[in-house]
Design a protein around this nucleic acid. Structure first.
Lengths: 187, 187
DNA sequence: ACCTGAACACCGTTCAAGT
DNA sequence: ACCTGAACACCGTTCAAGT
């Protein structure tokens, strides 16, 4: 399935990350599942951290390559934020790897993250023009929206959001609440 | 300074966490710095994860015990959120340990987190009564505010917020932006 | 009740060597 | 250019033993 050893290593690492979290990703097991020796990874990556950074960049790029489905600015904004949250809840370990502190300086990872950020700012600008969001610096407004989605996703994924009982809100609900408030300010 | 070995172990672990992140906290080094053998920790904690959970609970309780300084509901709300962010930026490893996924079931940690949450909801209710925040379920509104502060702090602490150039916003600015928008909706 | 020292099964990383 | 096997210095955890 994977052409070269490098891809096979990344595939194995992604599988392990998804199944058992970052602590399950050991170079020895990665090598084993890729059918090579326990230190073949060092012929393709400088270190374990570099392998994880390559994995993060690849997943971020794959996600950016998905086709855009929503049409209206309102749907595009909402769908982007909701799918970010779904992603975090579906792949918590990958989410933390990508959006947590980076332990190596990876150009690939920086470029992928910048591209995603730029794209999101475009979405925000379109929503501003449709009076769905208040006027003002779109980069700063994008940071506000992204921070809320990130925080709600991170807290929910860690189990710290649902306090139980009434007043319980999914991270998606919080995103919708914020969008409603911002639209009220914009209108 | 520390009365018993248990406290000495927690002190050493906290020092190591602060200085080198969670990966610098090894039971062997904790024991060394506490002046005991490398496995004395097992006489006080069931595992490394249990020691880290105890550390997290202790820090959370200490923080909750700080005296309240701000008087008006507006200041109290703003100061609570700002100080949460400053805490995250000053002690990123501790922040991630406390607010990340819990790997052991610690009653102590649950109680400390619940107390902090309850206290914050009170702050939100007071702000609602002062027309600084829109009406509605205070628990849900508290989740919204907490999620934004958490997301902004987490992204900033990981280096993912400041994209450089203009439109640059500190996490504190984002909190202030949200509070301004919500006050506009409330009034 | 608390602590030690040896031991076990891991791990990331390095190195000499092979094709 | 890519891979292997042995080796090194760690680590969490367990266990028998000491006071």
């Amino acid at each position: 399935m994977a052409a070269g050893t490098r891809d096979a290593l990344l595939d194995a690492a992604t599988r392990l990350l998804d199944a058992g979290g970052v602590e399950a990703v050991t170079l020895r097991e990665v090598g084993r599942q890729a059918g090579v020796s326990h230190n073949a990874p060092y012929k393709h990556f400088a270190s374990k951290k570099a392998l994880l950074a390559a994995l993060a960049a690849r997943e971020l790029e794959r996600r950016a390559a998905r086709p855009e489905t929503s049409v209206s600015p309102a749907d595009r904004l909402r769908d982007t934020l909701h799918s970010y949250i779904r992603w975090a809840l579906d792949s918590p370990a990958l989410f933390r790897l990508i959006f947590g502190p980076w332990t190596v300086d990876s150009t690939e990872l920086h470029l992928a993250a910048d591209a995603a950020q730029t794209r999101f700012v475009d979405t925000v600008v379109a929503a501003q023009q449709a009076d769905l969001l208040p006027a003002g610096d779109p980069v700063r407004l994008a940071s506000l929206l992204r921070s809320l989605a990130h925080g709600a996703a991170d807290l929910a994924s860690a189990g710290h959001l649902a306090a139980g009982g009434k007043g319980n809100a999914d991270p998606e609900d919080l995103v919708d609440d914020l969008l409603a408030h911002l639209r009220a300010v914009a209108g």
